[in-house]
Design a protein around this nucleic acid. Structure first.
Lengths: 228, 228
DNA sequence: CGCGGCTTTGATGTTCATCAAGTAAAGTGG
DNA sequence: CCACTTTACTTGATGAACATCAAAGCCGCG
């Protein structure tokens, strides 16, 4: 699973490693591993011991946990650069949440110890990483609160807009999740998610071809999401 | 609003400043200010510019935001040492959330620049603070997900248990929030929060004397909260 | 080609918000 | 300190929103 050392030109360098000089980057490169995950595979498992600092280089993942009742709750769905490892890496020694690949993904991982040593040597790096993690957390909390305050159709509209604008940046896309996963994301029943999407389809707001979705009337979707 | 310099023996020192030597602590002490807030006063206001790193030394606060529709959403209610400033201080230059005192509270504040300089000088401090912030965020996210997955009576039971166990550590306490605030916290209507509490009262699970609550049957409350 | 999982739709009942109207409590100004 | 005003609390009745259940269609995969 190793790859030639190309960290110096990695896109991720600008995201959290911008304060590292070339020497540190080369050192990082020796310690890092790159792993590929197929769609559906688990990247981190809730409860497992944390040994590495991981970041998504390519792909799409969902962050989720199992609720006390055993059903899945999706915390967020995210692309590279928005997602730095699993937040819980600094709060305890075990993962609080699971991460799974929704599309084929590649993940870079570095021993957590190495990152902590960088902290000691390079305060600028520490500030950068703290900023990044804070932003991600704020985004998750805001998203959760936004969803909570909407009704069913508002929530479905929100998810469709999220895929359109944040994830795919396109009005046509292949849904990377099942209907049930959407339900787990927005805290609704699967049947009602499907029903609402059928309604949107009947009203001409979206077009559905199997897993492929086309957002036909994005303005109306925005209105529904806001008013929801 | 200044106080004599006693930072060396402050309880908070163990929480995030444990890695600072006495000299840094004395320096911190010169820069810090201590402010008192009466019950009901706003400590931080959503949207305001962030200049200070603040931590709650004494009291009880709520962290909240105004939803797009204008109604209040309470993110969490917390005591000192669990709450380090407002999380958003590192993610942007303006507060994402407001903080208000639920009881008379005292807050210490230090210029954010001073903290950032400490980061550069002291990596251990950086790790410590990052750990603390991560834990707080994880707690908030977990709490939010826990609440989401419960029904009305489960949520009310959860809040009562939260006050009993986490906030007051006592089965008898004065509710520091209005019924409406509980509703804003758990995402329910005020009328139904009141109704549910009346039901608990009728069933002998709690006793209510004005603002004072006594949890009479904590086991039953636990069961309701879990099953909810 | 048949089995199992995901999806769809309808029917039904529960849960919960909303509205309304009344009561208690807490400020407020004279 | 009392009358007045306002805000918080309470309860019931009603309807809307949503979950659940059930049955059937679809699709991929062995």
């Amino acid at each position: 699973m190793f790859k030639p050392c190309d960290c110096e030109h990695c896109d991720f360098r600008d995201v959290v490693f911008s304060t590292l000089d070339d020497e540190s980057i080369r050192e990082l490169c020796q310690f890092k591993e790159e792993h590929s995950f197929r769609k559906g595979e688990i990247i981190n498992h809730e409860g497992e011991k944390i040994t590495d600092f991981k970041y998504l280089k390519h792909g799409l993942v969902k962050l989720f946990r199992r609720s006390p009742n055993g059903d899945e709750q999706i915390i967020t769905i995210t692309r590279p650069f928005e997602f730095v490892s699993n937040m819980s890496i600094f709060s305890g020694d075990r993962y609080q949440y699971s991460v799974a690949a929704l599309e084929d993904s590649t993940v870079c991982s570095v021993k957590l110890e190495f990152i902590k040593n960088l902290f000691l040597k390079n305060g600028g790096f520490a500030i950068g990483l703290l900023t990044k993690i804070s932003k991600i957390n704020d985004k998750i909390i805001n998203q959760t609160l936004d969803i909570r305050q909407k009704n069913l159709i508002g929530r479905v509209a929100f998810v469709l807009l999220y895929f359109t604008k944040e994830i795919f940046n396109s009005r046509v896309f292949d849904l990377p999740v099942s209907r049930k996963e959407i339900a787990d994301y927005i805290g609704m029943s699967t049947a009602n998610v499907i029903r609402t999407m059928s309604d949107f389809k009947k009203e001409g707001i979206i077009k559905v071809f199997g897993k492929t979705i086309e957002v036909a009337d994005i303005e109306k979707l925005e209105i529904i999401s806001k008013r929801g």
